[in-house]
Design a protein around this nucleic acid. Structure first.
Lengths: 201, 201
DNA sequence: CTCGGATGTTAGTCACCATTAACCGGCTCG
DNA sequence: CGAGCCGGTTAATGGTGACTAACATCCGAG
């Protein structure tokens, strides 16, 4: 009863992975359905056996990324790494550390996804775009909530702007690829982010 | 003898400005020549009286941005804001400040150009791409040179990675548009950048 | 004047590409 | 066995869009 599903799922996932890679490299409009097909060894319209169209492909990719980030954010903030119940500040600091680690690991492990996530939202049809934006907003709010505990005198607009700036910093990974190995890049980004946020005090 | 040239230059500049705006909003492949024409009040193939094609348009936009950044970088570093000749460190610190100010002002004044500069390099034909990359590399090296005076024990690869990260931070302006007025955004970004670079010590 | 270049215009032309149609083999389940 | 879906294939089809052709206008120089 579930025998034929496994290959289907694999193929679907394969297509999504290949499409994300191609979109990252050449942009949504720079990639044809034929390109995506041949990247997974089938050719052209076979894609339509798995997805309703090119836009649906992009929508699913972006929804997946946004959902993964948001979910990871919610999980890390809710269940922080420090089991004891410390002072509010130490708690918030641990939560920020967790958010940073989660985001950095994701960005270093999936530079192509980060690229697509940053660049292609405009090409998603309206309804999916709304859902993606909602997830992104929730993710930003996770950060803002944590930061507002650390820097209670800082107005929210400033916290939001700083959060976007830190995302820009962390998401620089696709551009500085190869400069430094990930083992060196991760702590560098972490340190830079923490230091830059300290000016909010 | 020079009478007819002025309108031509204006039209050319008008087209470049409109094209950059459109490329920023919808991406290179998402904009048609017809779109660009009607944005400046002429329609369609009139563009070819001024440019050899769509790619030439993008090439010129990116070359101009890269050249402006690099030129500004070279100028600010060579002729720093502090006239007295201070200790090497203070000198380098002033140069870094100047680079930061220059980049931030540019990014806040031209978010669309920043966006195009970040996203569309892949769509430029090979020969122009090489020249653009060279300019970008030179600009990065300006920063690395200044930083290597401030943090002499830091390996160049690390300085380069940090520079890219700071660019990501500063170039977040198109994404956090509207969160904060530019008068508040500029010092925030400046402070965050300086603080983040301090971890290189 | 009037010639010629600079700028535009409108109507092709040609490629490319998303999507659909029509058709096919294999595998599972009855 | 055989019916039917699953996942593929190759040929349309239709639209879009870059670029070219052919033709008009304006305007300054000689």
């Amino acid at each position: 009863m579930t025998a034929p599903r496994t290959p289907t799922r694999n193929r679907r996932a394969e297509i999504l992975r290949a499409a994300a890679e191609l979109f990252a490299a050449r942009g949504f409009h720079g990639v044809s359905i034929e390109d995506i097909g041949s990247a997974v060894g089938v050719s052209g319209p076979a894609i339509y056996r798995h997805f309703s169209g090119k836009e649906a492909l992009l929508s699913e990719i972006l929804l997946d990324i946004s959902e993964r980030l948001r979910e990871q954010g919610a999980r890390l903030v809710t269940a922080p790494a420090v089991p004891e119940s410390p002072s509010g500040d130490a708690y918030a600091r641990a939560a920020l550390d967790a958010l940073l680690h989660g985001h950095i690991d994701f960005a270093l492990a999936n530079p192509a996804l980060i690229r697509v996530h940053e660049r292609e939202l405009d090409n998603v049809p309206e309804s999916a775009r709304r859902r993606i934006r909602r997830l992104q907003r929730l993710y930003v709010e996770e950060w803002v909530t944590v930061l507002s505990e650390l820097y209670p005198d800082c107005p929210p607009a400033r916290l939001r702007a700083a959060t976007h700036a830190v995302f820009g910093l962390l998401n620089s990974t696709p551009r500085s690829a190869g400069e430094l190995p990930p083992q060196a890049m991760a702590p560098l980004l972490h340190g830079m982010a923490v230091a830059s946020l300290a000016v909010l005090a």
